[in-house]
Computed example of a mutant assay.
Amino acid sequence: MFVSDPLAVLGQLPGVPEAVEEARQAVDRLYRHRVLRRASPAVSTESSLRGARASASLEGVDVSLDALRRDEVHDPLVQGALRVSAEMGRLGATWRKAPRQVLARLHTVAAAGLADQADVGRPRSGDATADPLDLGPAPGAAEAAARMENLLDLLGSPTKAPAIVLAAIVHAELAVLRPFGTADGIVARSAERLTLVEYGLDPKSLAVVEVGHLELPYADALRAYLTGTPEGVAEWIRHCAAAVSLGVRETTAICEALQRG
């Protein structure tokens, strides 16, 4: 049976509407914080820094915020995460129109120093060997490419699903397909944040959703998604909604620290 809006169907899976609404309300409360009237750019910058740190940590490289602020960390994966965070602000307007181009750019920025120059920004032609989350073998290159085409089609199709649902599917597909073979997790989490920004939930990129993923059982939620069952997919989307809510909590702490001076 053909489903004209598959994302809307996913948005109605058990527990998903409630989790999505809770996250949306959390974001709405954050945007009413008085500090954002005068310091929204500073909050967004700090959110990006904390997001990059958390994203690198999910890949197995844990560093302190203080070390990042002092520019003392030279690990290529951490540097890639930082570059991606800086690059996202320039890619938002292109995300809806040319997502393939944006993903290639994100990987080029993230994988510098991790992959051969000839391979950055290009879909892998062989097997993906990196598996930092112990998810098991990734699909072969041909299957990954076919599923990426489906994902890109999905991004370009109209949907009534909330931004969180679309962001969750974009994130999961990139994370489990590992289409580039290096730094795929960094790219996946960046694409999720871009989707939350460009599809209207968090237009100022304030919520540190990556910290939410770090605090939650991230790999377990992705394994649930990998089952392909409605229950597993629902668990993943609920996880992403909870990550947004926790990311809002992190950003609220940033706002309150700025308020105290």
Rank of each mutant, 00 (worst) to 15 (best):
T251S: 12
A144E: 05
D202E: 07
E210Q: 14
L206Y: 08
G247R: 09
R24Q: 12
V211D: 07
D71I: 14
G247T: 07
A144V: 11
A161C: 06
V233E: 06
A130G: 05
A8C: 04
R100K: 08
G136L: 09
D75T: 13
R69I: 13
E256H: 14
I237S: 02
C240K: 05
L151A: 07
A146R: 02
D127I: 03
E231W: 00
A110Y: 00
S64C: 13
L82S: 11
L222C: 09
E210V: 01
Q12M: 10
D75L: 11
L226N: 00
L214E: 13
L222W: 10
L133I: 02
P17E: 04
A142V: 15
G15M: 06
A168E: 03
T45G: 12
G200T: 09
H239P: 03
G113Y: 11
D71F: 15
L177V: 01
V73P: 15
D153R: 08
N150W: 05
D28G: 08
A93W: 14
A146C: 09
Q25Y: 02
H171D: 01
H33K: 08
V61K: 12
G15F: 08
L135K: 00
G92R: 10
G185T: 05
V187E: 09
D71N: 15
A141M: 10
R50H: 05
T159L: 07
P203W: 04
V16K: 04
L65P: 06
F2L: 15
G200H: 11
V27S: 07
D220C: 02
D220W: 02
A257K: 15
E173P: 02
K204M: 09
P217Y: 04
D75P: 11
Y199F: 15
V61L: 11
D134R: 14
A167D: 02
V209L: 08
A19S: 13
I169P: 01
Y199A: 06
I169C: 04
A110E: 03
A183L: 08
V120W: 01
